[in-house]
Design a protein around this nucleic acid. Structure first.
Lengths: 238, 238
DNA sequence: ACCAGTGCGTGATCTGGATCACTGTTACTT
DNA sequence: AAGTAACAGTGATCCAGATCACGCACTGGT
């Protein structure tokens, strides 16, 4: 099956290759089938907005292919990115469950695909399958902890260096080698990194120079090589 | 019934004078009675820690009398206060539901009383009364929104002045007069206010002077008079 | 009365990072 | 191939607010 933006469409959750330890991705057979009925799938170009901060919640999006950034902005245009979502993540869950406006904007960072589940159908679905409702509650609670982590970082981590080091560490945790180094594909612009750690583009540029000079990291094309986790942890402190 | 610290003990939720629109405070008769059985009550002096950030969750605390501050700290001792809780508030709910460590520290700001519900009993109670479980989920979701509000403030609101103005506004919303002014009993030290808006004690002192000079507020003993909400809103902007 | 502890007000410095202003570098588009 | 965005590096400047260092007022304990 072919689709725009050069993607293959995944049209069945039960046979989806990205099935894994995700909410909505490994349900009981019945629940999975029911989910398959109430969801619709769509393909999005880079830059597409799944939903925008402040909108009334229409439903949740299950990211199947591609990355999306979640952000919130002030009136003057200052923006912070709170999370980079990957396939399997469920977006807009909290807004839908609490029936309050989306608290963030979700924008596709690359062409991708997402399933959409309308609010009413989801609520009905959760009533029908209480075990899924429980998992949703746990997910919400996990989201809360992530939010608190963000609060701690923004409120307590003093300098941009600290926050930058923290960010690098969070990237390297996933794909770590045992010698303390690790490699990550760098997909964000300096501008976006700046929005993640609450600073300016220029400062991020300088942080790159500084960290490279200090042998903390290294750049090979688009691949970021993190040299020493311990050294970074010493910078983070908090 | 007399107790330490000059407080009268409230020993029955069903006849409690602070019953109101709180989670756990206006339940069905059955649920209320059951709750009354599984809770225990205790009286705390000023400065008592109900629980500490990082501890495994033992249970939730329902604040009956007194105020408590919720805070989180870095290793170096920098602290941010995320919320001032008042009677009726349920503390530690998220940690208990998700069975993760308390994400904040809860400290009594004045002598008070709180009911304690052990984790196991609460979980059992929620299974027994699904309608209460639903309300708990809603409460969690509300907590999440509050956390996001905090993220926005910390990440987007530029200057201490802005955050201070925001804080004053949040205080004045409760007890507002129609002429735009309002009065609040000031119970926090400058140090604590500083920890709420992420700045230093000295800066808060200077903000007080500055705002008084600008006729935005006024201080009569321990009573804070907020002169003009609109003027404050103009400062907040975001 | 005394002292210690805690909170408050204010001046004098110092500095990290925002801001401004460029140039250089890719990478699409036509 | 040329032209136009978007992205990236780097110097120069500036300033809000942290930090340091006081003195002063109040409160509770002995």
């Amino acid at each position: 099956m072919r689709a725009p933006y050069g993607l293959n469409i995944l049209d069945n959750c039960l046979t989806c290759p990205v099935r894994g330890e995700h909410l909505f991705c490994n349900l009981s057979l019945q629940a999975g089938q029911r989910l398959n009925e109430i969801k619709s799938t769509a393909v999005y170009p880079k830059g597409a907005m799944l939903f925008i901060e402040g909108q009334q919640p229409r439903g949740v999006f299950v990211l199947c292919v591609g990355k999306a950034k979640l952000s919130t902005s002030s009136r003057e245009g200052k923006t912070i990115i709170t999370k980079i979502s990957d396939s399997g993540d469920v977006l807009g869950l909290n807004a839908v469950v609490s029936n309050r406006p989306y608290e963030v904007t979700a924008e596709m960072m690359e062409p991708g695909q997402a399933n959409f589940i309308p609010r009413d159908s989801l609520v009905q679905f959760l009533k029908e399958f209480p075990e899924v409702a429980l998992r949703v509650a746990q997910q919400l609670s996990r989201n809360y902890y992530t939010a608190y982590e963000e609060i701690r970082t923004l409120g307590l981590a003093a300098s941009p260096s600290e926050k930058f080091a923290k960010l690098l560490l969070s990237w390297s945790t996933n794909s770590g080698q045992d010698d303390g180094s690790s490699q990550v594909k760098l997909t964000l612009t300096h501008e976006e990194i700046a929005e993640m750690i609450g600073t300016t583009r220029e400062t991020v540029s300088r942080l790159f120079s500084e960290f490279k000079k200090k042998q903390l990291m290294q750049l090979k094309g688009a691949t970021l090589v993190i040299r020493s986790r311990v050294a970074l942890e010493k910078i983070v402190q908090s």
